[in-house]
Design a protein around this nucleic acid. Structure first.
Length: 279
DNA sequence: TGGCAA
DNA sequence: GCCAG
């Protein structure tokens, strides 16, 4: 058990925001599986200090929770109007999470035409069937090899529907090194995205999520149906969009309007809508 | 634009 | 959401 002191970090907002799917809260404690290990974390609401029970060390969580991000500097960049000002002040301490690339890739392929409870269920079934047992009911996320070598029927039990075949193909692409995930860190936002979109089942939105959440490309601005509604409501179809605001147009607008940290802007808008709906 | 699977 | 049509 050890502590991590934090500033501008809210554990509840960050783990609840819908970016990650393997954490659950029980009382004051969040329990999750990350990096092949179990972690239990709580936060002192007065001091912001984290209490951590895990074999993973302080440095791991510093990276994972992006405590290296200078939040005030990021706010200064993205605080372009009243809407964003309200969101960042209300949910201050919400941070992006730096996810493991492979797990992030599969998680967001599963997110296609799905919802958070179902994605969580899919991932926990996948882990229970193909991962390593860490504790009772807690399993590591399966490796690419584990998913690539399994037969389709077994995977079908995880209720992923049409996503199953895509997951197997992606696992194979990783195993055969058709795609080398670590190399995407070297590429810029657009090239990393293009590379991911060569996989079946990864389009614009999913690729944006993966480069933003796993590859440190904070220009990622994923536009799902929620963000589409938010932007239409707050910023209108005109004059920004010269006609109907399509998802593609909204994405380009968001990157331009909020600048190089627009991924954070998206996260705050998204979380606000999740908690409050459209106001 | 509708089918995907549930 | 992605993709084939």
């Amino acid at each position: 058990m050890y502590t991590i002191s934090t500033e501008d970090f809210d554990l509840d907002y960050t783990l609840d925001c819908g970016q990650v799917f393997r954490w659950d809260k029980d009382g004051d404690w969040w329990t999750g599986v990350v990096n092949n290990a179990v972690a239990r974390i709580s936060q002192n609401p007065k001091t912001g200090e984290l209490l951590v029970d895990s074999s993973l060390d302080e440095d791991f969580f510093y990276q994972y929770f992006r405590l290296d991000d200078d939040l005030p500097a990021i706010f200064e960049q993205i605080n372009k109007d009243e809407h964003m000002d309200i969101a960042i002040n209300k949910y201050r301490g919400l941070r992006l999470i730096r996810q493991e690339p492979w797990e992030c890739l599969i998680s967001y392929m599963l997110a296609t035409a799905s919802n958070i409870p179902r994605i969580k269920k899919n991932i926990s079934m996948l882990s229970a069937m193909f991962g390593e047992k860490l504790e009772d009911d807690l399993y590591s996320f399966p490796k690419a090899e584990d998913l690539a070598s399994t037969c389709c029927d077994d995977l079908c039990e995880c209720k992923m529907g049409f996503r199953t075949a895509r997951i197997i193909k992606a696992a194979n692409a990783v195993v055969t090194e058709d795609i080398v995930l670590d190399e995407l860190f070297q590429l810029d936002y657009h090239d990393a995205k293009k590379e991911l979109m060569s996989l079946e089942g990864i389009g614009e939105k999913v690729a944006d999520c993966i480069v933003l959440f796993a590859f440190d490309k904070m220009e990622g601005f994923p536009v799902d149906t929620h963000v589409e509604k938010i932007v239409r409501t707050y910023y209108g179809d005109d004059p920004f969009f010269e006609g109907k605001a399509t998802k593609t147009k909204i994405g380009n607008w968001g990157r331009h309007y909020f600048g190089k940290y627009c991924g954070y802007a998206q996260q705050y808008l998204f979380y606000q809508k999740r908690l409050e709906g459209l106001v």
